[in-house]
Design a binder for these strands. Structure first.
Length: 341
DNA sequence: CATCCACCGGAAATGTTGGGAC
DNA sequence: GTCCCAACATTTCCGGTGGATG
C-alpha cells in the first residue's frame, strides 16, 4: 500500500529535533545549572509536555558523557545501577554484583568523565523499590563530578521520598506546563512537514488532534497512526475515525517495557467499559475478564494479587485512574476508569 | 451490635534466570 | 558439568477495612 509518509522519523514520539520549540525558557534556565557540576536537577510536568525531549536536548548541547535510564525499563535499584555502570565503563557489568560494587565502579568513573546521569520517570522506580538508589547517588563519593537529572510528572515533594533522601538531593527544580493547543498544532505541523508528502494533510485534521489532546506523545502517535492508514489525504474525518486505534497504539507504546499481561489487563478494562457502557469497572470484574482473555489465547493467567500490582502500574502510567474503597458498602475494591484522548 | 461484602496490599515463600567459581 | 548466589517476578497466605443490612 502506498503511504503518505516519506520519512517516518519525525513522527516518532522519541524523535528529538535539534531545535526544541516552546521550551526555550526552561532550556536556558537549565543550561545555566550546567556551568558547574555536582548539581541535581528535578524536572516535572505532565505526560507529553517535553520532559524527555528537554533532557535529551540539554545532553546534546553540552559536551559531557550522558547516561539516560528510563525508569520504566530500569525499574529497580540494581537494574539502574547496572545500566549506568555498564554505560560508563562501556562494558556490560552483568548480574551477580553487589549494588555496592556497582556504586564503586560508578564512583571511579566520575572524576574523568564528569557525566550527566538522567533518571527519567522515577515514579516507576519508586513504585517497585524504595528510594535507596536516589539516596546512594546523592551521596556518592566524587559527587562533585556528577550532574544528576531526575524527571517525573509529580513535583519532587509529592514523591514518597524519605526525609534523608529529600534533604540529601535538594535538587534545583523546574516544571513544565502542558503545551497549549496552539503550540501542539505548531509542533505537529512542523513534524508533518518533515515527514509527510506535500498536500497529504488537511489543516482541520491537525486542528482536531491538537484541540483534543495536548499530550505531544499521544498527539504524534495519533498523527502517525492516521498517516499509516491512508494512501491519499489525512482529513479530519479520517483522524476521528482512527481515534480509538491511535489510543491503542499510544498505550502499546507506553507499555513497551512491560509484559503481555499488562496489555491484557488494560484490554480487559476497555472491553468491559465498551460492553456495558458504564464509566467504571471494579477490580474483581477486571480479573474475571482477564482470565477469559487468557483462556481464549491459551495463556496461563497470573494470580489476582499480581494483576492488582499490574493495575497499579497502569495507573502510574496514567493509562487508567482508580478510586479506592478500603471497605465500605462496596467492600474493599477499586473503581477503575480508562483514560482516552 | 454482629456480620457481610470484596479485595487491598504487606510479608514471606517459591520459581526462574544467569552469572561466577571450582 | 555442578554448586552456590543474587535479583526478580510471581504465588501463597492472610489480616484488615468501614458502610450496609438484619
Amino acid at each position: 500500500m502506498p503511504s503518505v509518509i516519506e520519512n517516518p522519523e519525525p513522527l516518532n514520539p522519541e524523535f528529538s529535533p535539534k531545535q526544541l520549540q516552546h521550551r526555550i525558557t526552561v532550556l536556558k534556565q537549565l543550561s545555566q545549572y550546567f556551568n558547574s557540576t555536582g548539581q541535581t536537577i528535578h524536572l516535572h510536568g505532565p505526560q507529553g509536555s517535553g520532559k524527555t525531549a528537554v533532557t535529551q536536548n540539554l545532553a546534546q548541547q553540552i559536551d559531557r558523557t550522558t547516561v539516560t535510564a528510563p525508569c520504566t525499563r530500569y525499574n529497580t535499584e540494581y537494574k539502574a545501577l547496572r545500566h549506568i555502570s555498564s554505560q560508563l565503563t562501556e562494558q556490560d557489568q552483568g548480574t551477580g554484583h553487589h549494588t555496592s560494587d556497582l556504586i564503586r565502579i560508578i564512583e571511579k568513573q566520575l572524576p574523568h568523565q564528569e557525566p550527566v546521569i538522567i533518571l527519567d520517570d522515577i515514579e516507576h522506580l519508586l513504585l517497585n523499590a524504595d528510594d535507596s538508589l536516589l539516596y546512594q547517588l546523592s551521596r556518592i563519593t566524587n559527587r562533585e563530578h556528577l550532574t544528576l537529572i531526575t524527571t517525573s510528572h509529580q513535583p519532587i515533594t509529592e514523591l514518597s521520598l524519605e526525609e534523608r533522601t529529600q534533604s540529601s538531593l535538594h535538587p534545583r527544580t523546574e516544571s513544565l506546563e502542558p503545551y497549549t493547543a496552539e503550540q501542539t498544532y505548531q509542533i505537529l505541523a512542523e513534524r508533518a512537514r518533515d515527514s509527510l508528502k506535500t498536500r497529504s494533510l488537511r489543516r482541520e485534521a491537525l486542528t482536531y488532534i491538537s484541540a483534543t489532546t495536548q499530550n505531544l506523545t499521544a498527539a504524534l502517535t495519533w498523527l502517525k497512526t492516521a498517516a499509516e492508514n491512508t494512501d491519499n489525504v489525512i482529513t479530519e474525518n479520517h483522524v476521528q475515525h482512527h481515534r480509538k486505534n491511535a489510543y491503542l497504539q499510544y498505550s502499546k507504546h507506553l507499555l513497551k517495557d512491560y509484559t503481555q499481561h499488562h496489555l491484557l489487563t488494560l484490554q480487559s478494562i476497555t472491553q468491559l467499559l465498551d460492553q456495558h457502557n458504564t464509566s467504571t469497572v471494579r477490580s474483581g470484574e477486571v480479573y474475571q475478564q482477564y482470565q477469559s482473555l487468557c483462556e481464549t489465547r491459551k495463556i496461563e493467567p497470573l494470580t489476582e494479587r499480581q494483576i492488582s500490582t499490574h493495575l497499579k502500574q497502569l495507573e502510574t502510567l496514567q493509562l487508567i485512574q482508580s478510586q479506592y474503597h478500603y471497605g465500605g458498602s462496596k467492600g474493599k475494591t477499586r473503581e477503575i476508569t480508562a483514560n482516552t484522548f
